[in-house]
Design a protein around this nucleic acid. Structure first.
Lengths: 183, 183
DNA sequence: ACCTGATGAGACACTGACGTCTCAAAAAAG
DNA sequence: CTTTTTTGAGACGTCAGTGTCTCATCAGGT
């Protein structure tokens, strides 16, 4: 048997991305296991969310690596990055809203690492003259998260086509972040 | 005595914008009234959220009116609109995430009205040639909500300055939505 | 000064979700 | 086949949040 922990996590991610308040019963049922077994693998809801964070961070850091942020024009790096993160967008959206509820609890250090790398990318774009400098890297990073969440939600609501996901985000973000061409 | 219902609502909005899971006790305490009195004015949490929706929708529709979306360049109308909605952004962010949890429950018709007006604004901008046409009005509207939420959260986290709020949103959104100048 | 109505404080029961436990059945290992 | 481990089903008890109720208190109007 040996429940496939990773499969459980991915099923939970898919469910919680759609319904953030899903019960542990629902999570277990969605994963095709009993609540008892779910509890044997994840001590509780907190532990499950932490595991999802770890999964999301691992996926995103892999995407960050694969996007080769230091190579070529920053705009192209952003395109590669968004495309690489797309599969994790639903999970990311869930965790993004979930983090707003963590009042005092300490954040997973992985988020800070991701933020730092994204900030660096946007800063590189600014220093190379590709991106405008009146929008701070911090804000661009924050906005990118927001656009991911918006797009993921809009897709799950059927308001935009899943195929357009990356294009919509990249075009809107870069259009704003890129320096305007001469008029 | 006659509790100031509007003041209670605004206090609740301010609290829930920061902590979406706040207890009714906390809401009542923040408003300086007892939970019993809170219950006398709002039948329950649902009713409170509905009232907050009505408040937010009223404020946003007032902002939509004040922004005179039909006048002048669409870009300027967007600027006026974002500036007008800014005071409601925190509340809007709370309701935006809250709506993801409303599974089957029917949505307040006001959201559809707002969406329609924003869609119309972006469509007007496209038809006048100001905005690019490869980003649909629906997506632009959705993205605007997302940017509102991101910015509101970033401000409350201290990551961006409150004074920059409107500028950051407008510049990022319009930079993406506006047609690129000839290069 | 007297009523009337609203408020605050608290008690109470209810509900849903959670965490823990047991035990039999099923799967894997030997 | 036997042993060991894992799982499923369900039965608890717990807890937080909620909805409802009562009653004493207090403000305001008359």
């Amino acid at each position: 048997m040996a429940v496939d922990r990773d499969l459980v996590l991915r099923t939970a991610a898919a469910l919680l991305s759609r319904k953030g308040t899903a019960t542990l019963d629902e999570v277990a049922q969605a994963a095709g296991i009993s609540r008892a077994t779910l509890h044997r693998h994840f001590a509780g809801r907190d532990a499950l969310v932490r595991a999802l964070e770890d999964l999301a961070i691992a996926e995103c850091e892999a995407a960050l690596d694969a996007a080769r942020l230091e190579e070529g024009p920053a705009a192209d790096a952003v395109r590669r990055l968004v495309g690489g993160i797309e599969p994790s967008a639903g999970l990311l959206a869930f965790l993004y809203t979930e983090n707003q509820l963590f009042e005092g609890a300490e954040q997973n250090a992985g988020w800070a690492r991701m933020d730092a790398r994204m900030n660096a990318l946007f800063r590189r774009g600014q220093e190379s003259g590709e991106f405008r400098i009146d929008l701070s890297p911090v804000w661009l990073t924050e906005a990118l998260y927001g656009l991911f969440a918006s797009a993921a939600w809009a897709v799950s609501e059927g308001r935009v086509a899943r195929n357009d996901f990356t294009h919509l985000i990249v075009e809107l973000l870069l259009g704003g972040a890129s320096r305007r061409e001469r008029s």
